[in-house]
């Protein structure tokens, strides 16, 4: 399989905190790739670097053949993204948010109109398309973010915890749409999630990141057999431990070092 994302020795530090520590991986074209890890592992930071929003401290990233540090503009043409954190303009209506996105991604007027309407219907927000986003509930905003991310059809779609805060019906609904796009258009999907059964169901390949380093990589089956687990959740826990994460990975590494010292 041809690679559409290639990451080599990628590192990102914020002052003393090393959020991403020398990771390397590839994602094949047309893959559905799950990037899993506990809170604070460095998933969002990695996605921000892949999507030109953060400059790496060191390392190489190629997205759709373009070096994201030098050919940002070309790289940006190749992907779409749904962020983990809110990214809507709350002073605009749902329709205006969608429309603005369509203009940014160069969709012509007629197609924009059609797609915006059908996607807003798909996430059941069409009734409210003239309402300001600030009057929406959390789940409605989330659905709008996802609909907006699906508006244009990029080569690569980054989804950072897309289904967070959504009910199971909506989650299934959205995943079947995404899988459909993946199949019909060979669109590569790069996503993160904390719902392990979701990852097990849709991912073709998985990388597990913990404390900024990749601790395992492979198909769901490979991860299960490697850890002797029945479910991906068990495999995940076996790989990343049972403890709740500190905010900073450094603090965490520090605690482990102290434990080791005591032994």
């Amino acid at each position: 399989m041809e690679n559409i994302i290639e990451v080599e020795n990628l590192t990102k530090s914020f002052g003393k905190i090393t959020a991403v520590n020398n990771i390397s991986f590839e994602v094949g074209k047309g893959d559905i790739f799950a990037f899993l890890g506990p809170n604070g592992a460095g998933k969002s930071t990695t996605i921000k670097m892949l999507t030109t929003l953060l400059e790496p401290t060191s390392g190489q990233i190629k997205v759709a053949g373009f070096d994201v540090c030098h050919d940002e503009d070309d790289a940006r043409h190749s992907f779409g993204i749904v962020f983990q954190d809110p990214s809507l303009d709350e002073d605009l209506t749902a329709y205006e948010n969608m429309d603005l996105h369509g203009v940014l991604y160069g969709i012509n007027k007629k197609e924009r109109k059609e797609r915006v309407e059908s996607l807003l219907k798909f996430v059941e927000l069409w009734d409210r398309h003239k309402d300001l986003v600030k009057h929406f509930s959390g789940g409605m905003k989330r659905r709008l973010e996802i609909a907006r991310g699906l508006l244009h059809h990029p080569k690569i779609l980054f989804l950072d915890e897309p289904t967070i805060g959504l009910d199971p019906q909506t989650r299934n609904h959205i995943w079947s749409y995404i899988k459909d796009m993946n199949q019909k258009e060979q669109m590569t999907i790069f996503f993160t999630t904390h719902y392990m059964e979701e990852a097990q169901r849709v991912a073709k390949n998985i990388a597990v990141i913990d404390n900024g380093t990749i601790v395992a990589q492979g198909t769901p089956e490979e991860l299960l057999s490697k850890t002797n687990s029945q479910s991906l959740e068990d495999a995940f826990l076996a790989l990343t431990g049972h403890n709740i994460r500190e905010e900073s990975p450094d603090a965490w590494a520090h605690i482990r070092a102290m434990k080791r010292a005591k032994r």
Partner: peptide, 14 residues
């Protein structure tokens, strides 16, 4: 702060 900046900075326009 409200996050909309991310949407504009990731877009494929100058």
């Amino acid at each position: 702060q409200f996050g909309f900046l991310k949407e504009t900075l990731a877009a494929p326009v100058s």
